[in-house]
Write a protein that binds this DNA or RNA. Structure first.
Lengths: 125, 125
DNA sequence: ATGGGAATGAAAACGGTTGTCGTTTGCGTG
DNA sequence: CACGCAAACGACAACCGTTTTCATTCCCAT
């Protein structure tokens, strides 16, 4: 792994939240790193492909990234501060499977995201 | 509702699938309608706001739209032809609620999409 | 008919993302 | 310690879906 890609991964590891490419780029720059936006995008692409991070599209189409543990899981995301918790959902997995079968769909995948306002953001209102 | 907006709604009603704004625009034009892309976007915005249609972001950030029945529901989407089935998921609703509560998140929403290949597309392989 | 506000759409602006291409870096080899 | 080569880098331009602008057209109550 190149130094730049490591820097991107490290920056993502600093915080359990979904962050945009541009945000990450700005943070790295502010932190003294000399890195181009293009490189950040490339690093993120690579990290996504190697399943080291997860991507999530915001409502306005911007891609956001988060360092994630391996394996299938979902996210509980604070719509205010972006902080996330990884959650498992055996119930959801089997539900999706059942629904797909009932309609003769094969090769099934699913995306599940739960949005809310975290304790901290809610109290600091 | 203006004539153009009605045309967009009608075009969406023709097919139970998520379709992009540009796709809808092209179909309308091909069908003899004289309508601008801007107007299609505006009509879609309006229909989304009045909850007459659902929006879904594709993996590459493009917005797609579908005529939908009112009320909370999810979709089973064919990744090949885009056809969708509306599905309910009481199990998912309560699961999301439980997960959020467990982590002290409030004001909870969730998105669930199930992707697969529909019978027709799978057999016509 | 007529005045005015809403709707329309061509074209330009926008913003995130990706492609281009010349330069730099890292590293194994002679 | 050069040398050379391939991969990585990054400034910049191109892309593309979407939104804004603004001049024109349409609709309708008066």
């Amino acid at each position: 792994m190149s130094r730049q890609r490591a820097a991107v991964a490290a920056e993502l590891a600093r915080e359990d939240a979904f962050r945009s490419a541009q945000d990450i780029h700005a943070s790295l720059r502010t932190g003294g790193h000399r890195i181009g936006l293009t490189t950040v995008y490339r690093a993120l692409q690579g990290l996504v492909e190697s399943a080291e991070i997860d991507v999530l599209r915001t409502d306005d189409g911007e891609a956001t990234y988060r360092a994630c543990s391996a394996g299938h899981h979902h996210h509980l995301v604070c719509r205010r501060c972006g902080v996330t918790v990884e959650v498992a959902g055996r119930a959801v997995e089997s539900w999706a499977e059942r629904v797909a079968q009932a309609h003769n769909f094969v090769d099934v995948e699913h995306t599940v995201e739960v949005f809310g306002t975290c304790r901290t953001c809610a109290s600091g209102d």
